[in-house]
């Protein structure tokens, strides 16, 4: 079955990719399966300098989900270029580089360096990480700031820029339309929702950072609704994510308005999940009467033009 998808200038063999931060730089998962089977790989966020991240504990389980506050630990943009990208070069899979920062200048620096790497096919502008004190999310919750950072990154990037949206806002379509005006080539949504858990024995937060980002199946209906809302306002390609665990979930995201999907938390429970979704997707599409991923998109578009 033809699983190919086109996200603007970015061409993927199938719509399944691991989500940023949940797959490292691919090395660990290459021990489980051949990464060439993936549609793309979204790598862990890069910042200007190396970051050590937050204190531990950094994760806590919740009902059908988890909280994390890793704090963007990474070896810095130069470290990633030197130590991690050469490994990914051996695969024929588009790499989507996730870009984070605390200031406009940092975003620009990281975006410029990353987009110059031949193995990087697109940037994912992360303006939605809720777990660092000065970073990212203030750009993602204010339409004016979101516009400026997108425009600045677009002006230095030689590759398509997908803006990763935060669900921690009153109206996500305001941010989506602002970044579209600024020249975004696509959207990634959603990042995690801010949450908190308290340990009853210690009577203090389980996560050392206090709050963390909620991910997993618990946020799936929110993601699907927000993708639906944004799809009413824009034709930009959307990479959808939030709690995907099965091929039925993938189809649900595609029908809501996504063009491709990313799988995050589910990799922790089953390291083989992305490979399995790629292999099982044709059966599921067929079971619901589709003969390609494009047919799902066409069906959604014709449905959308008749009803909302």
């Amino acid at each position: 079955m033809n699983l190919e998808v086109t996200l603007g200038d970015l061409h993927l063999n199938n719509p399944i990719m691991p989500a940023s931060g949940c797959f490292g730089f691919g090395r660990e998962f290459s021990a489980f399966y051949d990464l060439n089977q993936l549609g793309a790989i979204a790598i862990k966020a890069a910042t200007g300098e190396a970051r050590f991240g937050n204190q531990t504990p950094r994760v806590a389980e919740t009902s059908s989900g988890m909280l994390n506050a890793i704090g963007l630990q990474n070896p810095g943009v130069n470290g990633i270029i030197e130590q991690e990208l050469p490994f990914l070069n051996q695969y024929n899979v588009p790499v989507i580089a996730n870009i984070a920062g605390s200031t406009l200048e940092e975003y620009i620096e990281v975006a410029k360096k990353m987009s110059e790497q031949p193995v990087v096919q697109a940037l994912e502008l992360n303006i939605s990480c809720p777990n660092v004190k000065e970073g990212g999310v203030q750009f993602g919750t204010d339409p004016t700031l979101a516009y400026h950072v997108t425009q600045a990154v677009k002006s230095v990037s030689t590759k398509p820029v997908f803006v990763k949206l935060s669900p921690n806002v009153t109206d996500i379509t305001d941010i989506a339309t602002a970044v579209e005006k600024a020249g975004a080539d696509g959207l990634s949504m959603i990042n995690t929702l801010t949450g908190r858990r308290i340990d009853l024995h210690q009577q203090s937060p389980i996560i050392a950072n206090g709050s963390g980002g909620l991910s997993g199946p618990a946020i799936k209906p929110i993601a699907i609704h927000m993708i639906h809302q944004v799809r009413q306002k824009t034709d930009l390609p959307i990479i959808g994510m939030g709690g995907i665990q099965s091929t039925e979930d993938v189809l649900e995201f595609l029908l809501a308005g996504a063009d491709a999907v990313a799988v995050g938390t589910a990799n922790f429970q089953n390291p083989f999940i992305c490979e399995r979704l790629v292999q099982d997707l044709p059966n599921t599409l067929q079971a619901y009467g589709f003969n390609s991923v494009k047919e799902v998109r066409d069906a959604r578009c014709s449905h959308q033009s008749t009803s909302h």
């Binding site: 660990e28 050590f52 991240g53 504990p57 994760v59 994390n68 890793i70 630990q73 922790f268």
Partner: peptide, 16 residues
């Protein structure tokens, strides 16, 4: 330590 993935990908269980 509290772990996420258990295989080294998520950076939940780091120690200085």
């Amino acid at each position: 330590e509290r772990m996420g993935c258990g295989v080294g990908a998520c950076f939940a269980c780091v120690c200085e």
